[in-house]
């Protein structure tokens, strides 16, 4: 019993230490983000990595999600003779929920794991120590550009996912299932409000912060060689994905 309680205590202690270190890293990153010189080149490089290089996977995910949403909602709404609501159903689902969440999860898998792996490798090969010894702050040089890139590019990717999702839904609803194009577009425009889109964008901004911060944290504090790098990448993707889903519910509750 004592050993069991001790193990719970140790886990709780480790959890609090992780949350504390992560919060500390976040505050350091915010502070260094405003300390000149601002490293625009590093920031743009990371934005290209997180944003441009994730385009394909986000477009693919968004398009097929919109298509399947149209198909499923058509089957359900047809029973009530409400096929005209397929357009708004797809657009609202994409804008408020699936656009930010799915693109967030996909980019976490692609860019988040790569961030953790890159920083982890830099840690175990002493490259982060080398930065420090050259009087270059590693948090400013490595973490700040990645967090800025995450926070800036996740909303952009979400807008793209929303857009291609709606197009995918339109193709299935109008071209495949025969819903009138005017009705489809008209109903969509009637139902979807700006607040639906801003809700999704707010979520994606938070998801961008979660993914980049968690990936940087695990990568930065990697220990134990190649095995440690692998663990960091896995842990960062798992934790960031869980946090995205939990924060999605919390943000939905707050903003509804």
């Amino acid at each position: 019993m004592k050993a069991y309680l001790e193990s719970i205590g140790r886990s709780a202690e480790a959890f609090v230490a992780t949350v504390g270190s992560m919060a500390l890293m976040f505050f350091q990153a915010v502070m260094y983000a405003f300390v000149p010189p601002i490293k625009f080149r590093n920031i743009f490089k990371q934005m290209e990595f997180v944003g441009v290089q994730s385009l394909f996977v986000v477009i693919l995910t968004g398009t097929f999600t919109g298509m399947v949403l149209a198909l499923q909602s058509y089957n359900a709404l047809k029973r009530f003779g409400a096929e005209s609501l397929v357009g708004p159903s797809v657009a609202l689902s994409m804008a408020r929920e699936l656009g930010p969440v799915l693109s967030g999860l996909m980019v976490t898998g692609r860019a988040g794991s790569a961030m953790a792996t890159e920083l982890g490798t830099m840690r175990v090969t002493e490259q982060i120590d080398a930065l420090f010894t050259m009087a270059v702050n590693p948090v400013k040089h490595l973490v700040v550009p990645r967090i800025i890139a995450g926070v800036c590019m996740f909303p952009v990717l979400t807008v793209i996912a929303d857009f291609v999702g709606v197009i995918g839904g339109y193709m299935v609803g109008v071209k495949l299932l025969g819903i009138n194009a005017g009705v489809y577009i008209g109903r969509t425009v009637d139902f979807v409000q700006v607040s639906d889109i801003t809700t999704g964008l707010t979520k994606s901004l938070v998801f961008g912060l979660i993914t980049s911060l968690v990936a940087c944290y695990y990568g930065y504090y990697t220990m134990g060689g190649a095995e440690g790098v692998g663990k960091s990448a896995t842990s960062s993707v798992v934790l960031a994905s869980v946090l995205i889903l939990v924060s999605d519910y919390l943000l939905s509750s707050l903003m509804s």
Binding site: T121, M122, T125, E126, Q127, D129, A130, F132, T133, M134, A135, V136, N137
Partner: peptide, 29 residues
């Protein structure tokens, strides 16, 4: 940090930045 600029260090693994060329590494400081 000001003091560190008066120091140099050669690491056991050399700790060169993979993402840069030799010129980028040496010219980094």
């Amino acid at each position: 940090n000001e003091v560190l600029k008066r120091f140099g260090m050669l690491f056991q693994s050399a700790a060169l930045f993979d993402s840069m060329t030799v010129a980028g590494n040496v010219g980094f400081p």
